[in-house]
């Protein structure tokens, strides 16, 4: 996660951190030709790292020349004397920060940055795009480490200089936001799951509202404050609840009154707790392994009433259940069956 701040269109500050797993947290950024660039490089890893910006295509040549420095390497910060080395931050110990400033080349191109500490440079690198144009989609970018091509920042990285680091920590799914999202009550909860699936669970109505595939959310606008706004859903919605309420006691059509009680995090997955006509319900939602849908685990431990799970044929998913009996689009669960059951919803 890194911050790219635009002062003017020609004046760019880039924050790059060395982080665990031999990587830079920021694997690419874009500057305009001739821009004034300030890079603030911080080593947040527990090993030493440097940052060397090379001419286009020269990364491996510089990396190999650094290894060839042998005994002299350490005192030269593993930075070989080559014309292809354009700018560099010397070796930083864990916790150190150093800033360099330079004027970006006039010539458009992809300028690699790399850690030339022996052994690091083959995997620990990124790309400075010097261009007035856009960057390729991250998944198609040959200039970044292959295992970083699914970076969650992709959507915002396209937005030129507007990328903001969201928090002091890296968010790893599952995680959630209580935030304004479209097509739900103002008391919505957006949950990002592994396998690039997300869903909106509405604490105002105690029900799953919709689910989507792709990236999670862009909260940039809402976090500006002081105006009406929504978090933007950054994927494709494949499911929307079209019922009045999916859990109906006794018989279909009986819409219960609901009350939201909160949630417990179980291995970081929220298990929601709410009541329907006073009956306590627990609901925990996980992604299907391949990301093609959701597995909803319900517990209604104290029900003495039959529970109907009601769906709509046009809600975008097909259903499987661990218990109960489907009658058209309605699942009938006897009290014993309703105590614990799962409903798997697969994108059609």
């Amino acid at each position: 996660m890194a911050q790219v701040k635009a002062h003017t269109s020609n004046d760019t500050t880039i924050l790059i951190n060395a982080v665990g797993g031999l990587q830079y947290d920021l694997v690419r950024f874009k500057v305009k030709p001739g821009a004034k660039v300030k890079i603030i490089f911080t080593n947040k890893d527990d090993m030493s790292h440097n940052l060397v910006i090379t001419g286009p295509g020269a990364r491996l040549k510089v990396v190999n020349a650094a290894i060839a420095l042998g005994n002299d390497g350490a005192k030269m910060n593993y930075i070989p004397k080559l014309p292809e080395v354009l700018w560099s931050v010397p070796i930083l110990a864990p916790g150190e920060t150093k800033t360099i400033t330079f004027t970006a080349p006039k010539k458009e191109g992809v300028y690699p940055y790399v850690c030339t500490y022996p052994g690091h440079g083959f995997v620990m690198f990124g790309a400075m795009y010097v261009t007035d144009q856009g960057m390729p989609a991250m998944k198609d970018d040959p200039n970044i480490p292959p295992d970083r091509k699914k970076d969650m920042n992709e959507s915002s990285a396209h937005k030129d200089h507007s990328t903001q680091r969201a928090h002091s920590y890296r968010e790893v799914p599952p995680y959630l936001y209580r935030i304004f999202v479209p097509d739900a009550s103002p008391a919505a909860i957006a949950v990002n799951l592994p396998h690039r699936v997300s869903y909106c669970w509405d604490a105002g109505e105690c029900r799953l509202r919709y689910a989507w595939q792709g990236d999670f959310m862009d909260n940039t606008d809402i976090w500006k404050g002081h105006h009406d706004s929504y978090g933007n859903i950054m994927g494709t919605i494949f499911y929307r609840d079209k019922t009045a309420f999916p859990l109906q006691p006794d018989q279909p059509g009986n819409i219960p009154t609901v009350d939201f009680k909160g949630y417990q995090l179980i291995k970081r997955y929220p298990e929601f707790r709410y009541t329907i006509d006073g009956i306590e319900v627990y609901e925990l939602i996980k992604p299907k392994e391949n990301g093609t849908g959701l597995i909803r685990s319900f517990r209604i431990p104290k029900t003495s009433r039959t529970i109907w799970f009601v769906s709509d044929a046009k809600d975008g998913v097909s259903y499987q259940s661990s218990a109960g009996k489907w009658i058209n689009n309605k699942l009938k669960l006897l009290p014993d069956e309703a105590r614990q059951f799962t409903i798997t919803m697969t994108k059609k």
Binding site: A187, A203, H226, S229, F260, G262, L265
Partner: peptide, 18 residues
Amino acid sequence: EADLYETVTDDFGITGNY
């Protein structure tokens, strides 16, 4: 780290107005 979030009261209205 917190693992339990319990609603103490949500017995008031919200319209989504910022």
